[in-house]
Amino acid sequence: MNDHHMTDPGRTIEMDLGADGHTDRFLKIVNHVSRQNISMCWHCWTCGGGCPFSQHMDLLPNQVIRLIQMGRGEDALRCNTIWLCVGCHTCSSQCPNSIDVAAVMDALRQLAIRDGITAPEMDIFRFHKYIYESIERHGRLNKLAAMVQFKVGSGRLFSDLQSGLKMITRGKLEILPQKVADRDELNRIFTHYDRRRRSFDAHE
């Protein structure tokens, strides 16, 4: 079991109460990107209770939200929680305040990447990166290419080799990528979000 008290966000409190408005600013960005209102969270811990990965997380999902409420955005971006979350919505479907916690985690990942914060879970980070790039290239996911890149990138080329081969021989990984025909439209989507990456509007 994880000693959650060890990771109580209150542990090293040096609260920036946001004299410069900073506290609020990060919270607003998160709310905007996720289209949620995390000020509503009253820390009932329901989300963490159902989360299938909570025992591996250094902060429970509501503790991440708490950090943001306290203006400690950077700490929220450094935890492994946001990377371990798979977006299964187990939490979101039970939240008494109708907060889509999974969407909050999505927003935090985007912000962590934007701020160049090293992910404490590099393999998961790489996984997302290769899948993202595969879709940026083709518009659809080519699992084989993304998996090979992942294996090379994570230096785990030979781990899991047997299941990988089994998947290829059983036709569970496709060799040839499928592609979207209207490349221009696809490019417009990706360019739009790339161009605005660094402004507040980036999060539209």
Partner: peptide, 18 residues
């Protein structure tokens, strides 16, 4: 006719509005 990834997989995980 010309569908693309729905934004599930990793896209929404790192760029929700994209």
């Amino acid at each position: 006719p010309d569908w693309n990834c729905c934004g599930s997989s990793s896209i929404h995980a790192v760029r929700p509005q994209l």
